[in-house]
């Protein structure tokens, strides 16, 4: 599938993946994350079940201390 991940095109062999699988594949390791799929906020406990399919717009935002 082809998706948009953080404003960039991203290809995965799989036809669909859960958010949890994408986090693992892309090695997102920060603890504080905000995740949106097609503009909808995904809660932490939904990451294992929220499916991402071809054409989806996925935002994975690291919240980093400092300001």
């Amino acid at each position: 599938m082809n998706i948009t991940l953080n404003n960039r095109p991203q290809f995965f062999e799989e036809e669909s993946l859960t958010i949890a699988e994408i986090l693992k594949l892309k090695k997102f390791s920060f603890k504080m994350l905000v995740i949106k799929v097609n503009g909808k906020l995904i809660k932490k406990n939904e990451c294992a079940t929220q499916e991402v399919v071809d054409g989806d717009d996925v935002q994975i935002i690291h919240l980093i201390s400092g300001g």
Binding site: N7, Q59, I61, H62, I64, S65, G66, G67
Partner: peptide
């Protein structure tokens, strides 16, 4: 800077402050 819906993100999105990396 990049946009995600109503969010506009400015920064390097990587460097967290620490003792050896102060703001």
């Amino acid at each position: 800077c990049r946009q995600a819906d109503n969010l506009f993100i400015c920064g390097d999105e990587v460097r967290e402050i620490s003792e050896d990396l102060p703001p």
